[in-house]
Design a protein around this nucleic acid. Structure first.
Lengths: 152, 152
DNA sequence: GTTGAAACCGGTTGTCT
DNA sequence: AGACAACCGGTTTCAAC
């Protein structure tokens, strides 16, 4: 089966730290560089590794406010969904947008500079979308955990 | 001011793709490798770049179910918060955990294999925490957008 | 901030087991 | 599939401008 346990060990390390050298990973898992190199290439090619990114410190870069928004659309129809999906993808303030089950339609994660910036986003970008009926906002007071690591 | 516009250009590229070579970034922004190298070192040292990670494709790795949970604690006291924070940090299923303002206390993002795995997590790990009074769950039906890029 | 050079090291490939 | 060795290219540091 692919990926096997060795592949998983490699994936676990790369999702913690994308700057590990093949050498380091190889010695970690008691292999030489060649098979580790081949496995990583294959894992990338097959799409197990999506991409490598740098994670920035949003707070010292002046993006101190994070919030979650629940969005309800005016009607549950294909056109409304498509409109909203396209709009969400385009908005730089929206880091995550998911359609969810329950008593509202979308869960959004928003990152902006401060309350004033949120207000601008809310009033002039989000609430003006014609497919949007209702929005509830939950401001993040304290970020306890934020990881991209999935357990494999 | 630090970071200046050149630093920001570098940060924008690195948060899109951590595997860009210094050469590529340098030619992108019309600089030679030396200053770009120095700037990246400084940005890392000063904490503007938190870390570099590989992002995995959770779906083909068998982690198909994502959900958001609203958690309300039994009482808004320091001890309950600390208990819950520590527990959340330890749970591999919890990718994000934030204390929020509003009519519940925490917003959690959960990633697991499937409904059965969620049930196990919910029944035996989350709901059993003694500080937890109430949980509402919203299953992700469709992931429209999920990025780690902040706009700078 | 630029250029150029040099040392070093990791990535990459081919060959052998 | 993994080990070994050789080559290539990027990183890192330095000097001089």
């Amino acid at each position: 089966m692919f990926p096997d346990e060795t592949d998983k060990k490699i994936l676990r390390r790369l999702q913690q730290n994308a700057r590990l050298t093949i050498k380091e990973i190889a010695s970690d898992i008691n292999l030489s560089v060649t098979p580790v190199h081949e496995r990583i290439r294959k894992l990338e090619k097959e799409g197990y590794i999506d991409r490598y990114v740098g994670l920035l410190n949003r707070k010292i870069l002046g993006k101190a406010l994070m919030a979650y928004c629940h969005v309800t659309l005016d009607k549950q129809q294909k056109e409304s969904f498509e409109d909203f999906n396209n709009a969400a993808k385009e908005m730089e303030e929206v880091l995550e947008c998911s359609m969810v089950s329950g008593n509202f339609d979308y869960m959004l994660k928003i990152v902006v500079q401060d309350g004033e910036a949120f207000n601008q986003f809310y009033q002039y970008k989000l609430s003006v979308l014609k497919s949007v009926l209702h929005i509830s906002t939950y401001f993040v007071i304290s970020e306890i955990k934020n990881t991209t690591e999935i357990s494999i």
